[in-house]
C-alpha cells in the first residue's frame, strides 16, 4: 500500500516533467502549464485531507467575514442568526487558508513580474469602455450574486468544483454542471449577444 502511495505521489511529478519537456518554450515568463498547476492542486488536496482533515474550499470564508462585520455593527442580531449558531464565525482553517491565498497570489505575481495595480482588463475595455465606475458596480453585483449562490449550493469552484467532485460527491457534480450553465449563458449574453 505504501508503494502505491509513492507511485501516486510520483505520477503528477512525472506528468509535469513530460509536460515541461514538450511545452517549455510556450511557458516563458510567469505562467505555468495548466497540467502542472492542476496536478499541483490535486496533490495539495491530498495534503489538506491527510494533514488538516479538510477539503480545499474558499466560499465559507465570505460568510465568516460577513459574521465578523455583522458582530461589529449589530452584535446581538448577528449572534441570534440561526446560521451563526450552528457555524459561529471564527478564525479557523478556512479563514486562514483564504487570507493566505492572497499572499500566495502576491508571491506568485511578484516573482513572475505580474503585479497589476489596475482596475480594467483589455477584454473588458474593448467591450464596455474604460469607465472604472461601471466595472466596479458590475463586479460588486457579480460578487453579491456569486457568494449568495455559493452559500446556497454549499460550495464554490473549489469546494464543489474540485474538492467535491474528486470525492465523487453527487451534489458537487450537479453543482458544477449548473455553474457552467449559468456562467456560459451569462458570459455569452454579456460579451456576444447583449
Amino acid at each position: 500500500m505504501n508503494r502505491l502511495l509513492l507511485a501516486l505521489c510520483l505520477m503528477p511529478a512525472l506528468a509535469s516533467a513530460a509536460d515541461f519537456g514538450v511545452d517549455a518554450r510556450n511557458y516563458s515568463g510567469g505562467a505555468w502549464s495548466p497540467y502542472v498547476v492542476g496536478a499541483g492542486i490535486g496533490v495539495l488536496s491530498w495534503l489538506t485531507f491527510y494533514f488538516a482533515d479538510k477539503p480545499i474550499g474558499a466560499s465559507s470564508f465570505y460568510a465568516t467575514v460577513a459574521g465578523f462585520i455583522g458582530k461589529l455593527v449589530a452584535r446581538k442580531h448577528t449572534q441570534s442568526l440561526e446560521h451563526y449558531q450552528t457555524e459561529p464565525p471564527a478564525v479557523d482553517y478556512g479563514f486562514v487558508f483564504v487570507i493566505c491565498t492572497i499572499l500566495g497570489g502576491f508571491i506568485a505575481a511578484w516573482t513572475g513580474g505580474e503585479i497589476r495595480n489596475e482596475w480594467l482588463h483589455p477584454m473588458w475595455v474593448e467591450r464596455f469602455g474604460n469607465s472604472i465606475a461601471l466595472r466596479g458596480v458590475i463586479g460588486f453585483i457579480g460578487g453579491v450574486l456569486m457568494a449568495f449562490g455559493a452559500r446556497l449550493a454549499g460550495g464554490c469552484t473549489s469546494g464543489h468544483g474540485i474538492s467535491g467532485t474528486l470525492q465523487l460527491n453527487a451534489g458537487s457534480w450537479l453543482t458544477v454542471i449548473f455553474i457552467f450553465i449559468g456562467g456560459i449563458a451569462a458570459a455569452m449574453l454579456l460579451f456576444t449577444y447583449l
Binding site: 463586479g139 453585483i141 456569486m146 457568494a147 449562490g149 455559493a150 449548473f178 450553465i181 449559468g182 451569462a186
Partner: peptide, 8 residues
C-alpha cells in the same frame, strides 16, 4: 446564481 455572478 453562482455561475451567473461568476460570469458578471
Amino acid at each position: 446564481l453562482f455561475g451567473t455572478g461568476l460570469a458578471i
